[in-house]
């Protein structure tokens, strides 16, 4: 961390490693029979084909819509409830057990049941994404408020600060870094929820595309949407990290 490395060495190592992995992959795939164990070359040509035909975009847009709705709903519910739970001790005590219980439940397990109840449509997918997002946002928002310096609160109160003022001047600014961490974790979970929901619910979205090509043993084509999800995951996480650094430069990146 403290020593500045030669960027040529850094990128040489990283790119070299990637090339070695790709080379080993390509050789193994060709040896084992290419149509089954997709080689990087085959994936690239599938990607080109899927992009040309417009298929990839056709399936990708609904996924983005589901993600956006579920995610925004998760924030709209998770942040205010989380802040309230963090502020009021008894609310925190009552909700701690159920929230941990739901947070540690593998939510993916409930998807087939939600599917039966809500049907094979967009509602199910949005709900699943929402459920995946809401708890991480809620837990982190609550942790943020609970982490506020008690002395600071006492000081503010002894100077006659009202509750809204407390929120504006102290609680929200100190909770913000935590809330942002929760949002970042939430995005990762939202992607998981969207994909798993699309595996089962209906015939749209990249999740469906993955299943469709896997069932046809076309591994190369199935890996194209996977690659796209990887890009989406990495991109959104990196973007949020930037947002975090910009909005809360004072917070250190060392938690959760």
């Amino acid at each position: 961390m403290d020593r500045a490395e030669d960027p040529r060495l850094v990128w040489g190592l990283r790119i070299g490693f990637a090339l070695v992995v790709l080379a080993v992959w390509q050789v193994t795939a060709v040896r084992l029979g290419e149509n089954f164990f997709a080689a990087p070359g085959a994936i690239v040509s599938s990607a080109v084909a899927l992009l040309r035909s417009g298929e990839l975009m056709h399936y990708f847009v609904p996924t983005l819509e589901v993600l956006a709705w579920g995610f925004l709903l998760g924030l709209a519910v998770g942040i205010p409830i989380g802040l309230a739970i963090g502020r009021w001790r008894r609310l925190y005590w009552v909700s701690e057990g159920p929230i941990n219980l739901f947070y540690t439940t593998p939510l993916a397990a409930v998807i087939p049941i939600i599917l039966v109840i809500l049907g094979f449509g967009t509602t199910t997918k949005v709900f699943v994404v929402f459920a995946f997002v809401v708890f991480s946002v809620l837990i982190n928002s609550a942790a943020g408020v609970r982490n506020v310096d008690g002395d600071l609160l006492e000081l503010a109160r002894s100077y006659g600060s009202s509750e809204p003022m407390l929120w504006r001047e102290i609680l929200i600014p100190s909770a913000l870094p935590f809330v942002l961490v929760g949002i970042r974790i939430g995005i990762g979970r939202a992607l998981i929820g969207a994909v798993v929901a699309e595996f089962y619910a209906g015939i749209s979205g990249v999740g469906y595309l993955i299943i469709y090509y896997s069932n046809r043993f076309d591994v190369a084509s199935a890996l194209v949407p996977v690659g796209m999800l990887i890009a989406l995951g990495v991109g959104s996480t990196a973007g949020l990290k930037r947002l975090q650094e910009w909005l809360t430069p004072w917070a250190s990146e060392a938690r959760v």
Binding site: F36, F37, A108, G188, L191, I192, A194, V195, V196, F199, V206, G207, I210, I211, S214, N215, F217, V219, A222, L223, P225, V226, L229, I230, G233, V234, S236, T237
Partner: peptide, 18 residues
């Protein structure tokens, strides 16, 4: 870190084929 940030569930159907 990149793979940690990705929804790995996406590769499950592919892995099962393999």
């Amino acid at each position: 870190s990149a793979l940690y940030a990705t929804p790995l569930v996406a590769i499950i159907p592919v892995l099962i084929v393999l």
